[in-house]
């Protein structure tokens, strides 16, 4: 190390570093700064002892507090569930109509239902429950399987064509593929169906023949007035709401190949309070009957 050099003007030792004749004074750090620095070092040692700090080959030092973010999250989730337990138990005990007419239960069920809907139902029905082609819009007043609280609850519990014993089932046959109707008949009946809600029929279609074909093949499920039958999940064909689309091409495709959407059964996957919340939430979207 070089000999200590003292700056003549200030009387302070220099570091020996020089830039264009300017020398750096070796002033000590402010005492508060040094103290803070040492306190930080002392604190870091305390931290190593208390908290997880050092990675090991297949593990890490846990520290005497054995702190873990996972445990913290688990505790917070448990605390949240405990906080909700009272309301959740009340939901399980109350019937759906009571929930709907009680301000407090309704508010809890709606909040709970909104969250559960986003987690479980939104992938098919959309975050706003507006559905997609083949997945019904739950906001409107058309219900394939019934729109009362109990109907909705039943659908959520057991699903549609889900394989559950209690599942709702009903078949829209593939009239074309299975050669139950020929192409002209399909064109005629599709044109008849589309005309019921004011749509434009196919060119050259015989709507009177279509009505006959309908009465012979479709009325059994969709009803003579084509207003559908909820026991079988047969939709009303006279309104403006179409699950797969209301154009003549789509209706012909539906008649040719049949339809059969699937909804899973949620009983066993979601607890009773959650299913009730979902039923109330869906019912409250506006279309509930």
């Amino acid at each position: 190390m070089a000999k200590k050099e003292v700056d003549a003007i200030s009387g302070v030792e220099t570091t020996g570093h020089e830039w264009d004749g300017l020398k750096e004074l070796n002033n000590p750090l402010p005492r508060w700064w040094v103290l803070t620095f040492y306190i930080c070092i002392a604190w870091s040692i305390v931290y190593w002892v208390l908290m997880p700090a050092w990675p090991l080959v297949s593990d890490y030092t846990h520290g005497i507090r054995n702190h873990s973010q996972r445990t913290v999250v688990a505790e917070e989730v448990a605390a949240l569930e405990a906080a909700r337990a009272g309301n959740a138990a009340a939901l399980v005990d109350a019937d759906l109509q009571t929930i709907k007419s009680s301000q407090d239960l309704l508010q809890f069920a709606m909040a709970n239902g909104r969250a559960a809907f986003g987690d479980n139902c939104a992938p098919c029905h959309g975050t706003g429950a507006t559905g997609f082609t083949g997945y019904p819009n739950l906001n409107d007043d058309e219900w394939l399987w019934g729109g009362t609280l109990d109907d909705i609850s039943q659908t959520i519990h057991y699903g549609i064509r889900s394989g559950h014993d209690e599942a709702r089932t009903g078949d829209m046959l593939a009239f074309g593929r299975d050669e139950l109707l020929d192409r002209d008949q399909i064109r005629d009946v599709a044109s008849y169906v589309v005309s019921l809600s004011g749509g434009s029929p196919a060119e050259g279609a015989d709507i009177a023949n279509g009505e006959t074909v309908f009465a012979d093949n479709c009325a059994a499920c969709h009803g003579e007035d084509a207003k559908g039958m909820q026991e079988l999940g047969a939709p009303n064909l006279t309104d403006n709401i179409w699950l797969y689309g209301g154009s003549i091409e789509t209706v012909m495709e539906t008649i040719t190949n049949g339809r059969g959407g699937v909804m899973p059964a949620w009983t066993g996957r979601l607890d009773e309070a959650t299913i009730k919340s979902l039923a109330v939430y869906v019912h409250s979207l506006g279309g509930g009957q």
Partner: peptide, 8 residues
């Protein structure tokens, strides 16, 4: 979402 709903 939805902004409006069309009924039957």
């Amino acid at each position: 979402n939805p902004l409006f709903v069309t009924l039957q």
